[in-house]
């Protein structure tokens, strides 16, 4: 078990930017989640830590060791791939035991560790099966067992749950969390699913276009987004981002005028409002005026899309909401929104 640190790490392929000037410290026993949209460089970052990709510049340390130029074999990290990457000709037991076999661990010791790892992921009854005879969830558990069997310095997991159906994803999420609590090994976990990130992470790194947008605890990311991008990515549904200008301490846009504790007139600003932080009020108290465009029911809530001026706004209402399309609605923010600079996107 060790800490991992990346300093000034970049990866380019010709003109393509994979990762740009990334500095990151993962503490011992920490569960760090890389979160961001597809193509933002999460996998590239993870592959550089695993040694499968060589950084164009920068250094990577695992524990006290500079591993920048070492191959995957010498790094002692374990990786779980999105598509499981099990060895199809081997049984579950042989798959789990492969890292031990590669290290020349003795037969009896192997058997003991395989059984232990299989037990932790509840696969003890499947040791003699081939991967083809397993369900997706079971395959991913084999991949997990193969990672934990040799007590590596760190776990790397690249979207391990994204090929599973929704229910399985939740139970596997629980399993991963539990394993981490039991074993405590530092983990880097990649996902584009903000809910997964929120529930699993000690800290989240939000990435965009190969660069870090914000590093923080789930709480910090959710309640204090550093940029408009983070606010627009986190939450389900994520925050509404509305363009407007500040005039006399008021955020103004067509159909919107929200009090803003900000100075500077005519300044371009982005207002972030959570869908659940908007309430319906009568005309006199309204800060926002809109027309209902669409209504979606999710079972426990109703998502209402409105047009406000030229912009769109999503509001989360109770399940038995009675709004109808084309209805005019007056609204008010029930929590302080987030204000971001219109040019840089940074929180003000």
């Amino acid at each position: 078990m060790s800490s991992i640190s990346l300093s000034g790490v970049s990866k380019f392929w010709g003109d393509t930017i994979g990762v740009k000037d990334l500095s990151l410290d993962i503490e011992d026993k920490e569960f760090l989640v890389l979160l961001g949209p597809s193509g933002c460089g999460k996998t590239t970052t993870m592959r550089m830590v695993a040694g499968l990709e060589k950084p164009s510049s920068g250094t990577i340390h695992i524990g006290q060791r500079d591993v920048t130029s070492l191959g995957p074999r010498e790094r002692d990290v374990a990786m779980v791939f999105q598509n499981y990457s099990l060895y199809p000709q081997m049984t579950v037991a042989q798959n789990i035991g492969f890292p031990l076999r590669a290290r020349g661990v003795g037969r009896n010791e192997q058997r003991r560790k395989i059984h232990l790892a299989a037990k932790m992921v509840e696969l003890s009854d499947y040791l003699d099966r081939k991967p083809a005879a397993l369900s997706g969830g079971q395959r991913q558990r084999v991949a997990l067992a193969r990672a934990i069997v040799r007590s590596p310095a760190a776990f790397l997991m690249d979207e391990p749950l994204s090929n599973l159906d929704a229910r399985l994803r939740i139970s596997m999420r629980g399993l991963i969390k539990r394993l981490h609590n039991e074993i405590g090994t530092s983990t880097i976990y990649v996902t584009h699913d903000q809910l997964e990130a929120m529930t699993l992470a000690d800290r989240i790194v939000v990435m965009r276009n190969g660069e870090v947008e914000q590093i923080g605890t789930p709480n910090q990311i959710y309640n204090h987004p550093r940029t408009a991008f983070v606010a627009g990515f986190v939450g389900s549904p994520s925050s509404n981002l509305l363009d407007g200008r500040i005039e006399n301490g008021v955020f103004n846009a067509s159909g919107i005028s929200v009090a803003a504790p900000l100075k500077g007139d005519h300044r371009k600003v982005i207002l972030g409002i959570r869908p659940e932080a908007i309430s319906l009020v009568n005309e006199a108290d309204a800060e926002l005026h809109g027309t209902v465009l669409a209504i979606e029911t999710t079972g426990d809530a109703t998502l209402v899309t409105l047009s406000v001026g030229k912009q769109e706004l999503i509001v989360k209402r109770e399940a038995n909401c009675t709004l109808e399309p084309d209805q005019a609605v007056s609204m008010k923010t029930s929590q302080q929104g987030f204000f971001f600079d219109g040019e840089s996107g940074l929180a003000i």
Binding site: A50, R73, M79, Y87
Partner: peptide
């Protein structure tokens, strides 16, 4: 990815090829 998994698991090229 299967070969990469083997490399991360610590296998040499020969073991990867053979096993």
């Amino acid at each position: 990815e299967i070969e990469e998994a083997a490399r991360v698991d610590g296998a040499s090229i020969l073991l990867t090829l053979r096993a």
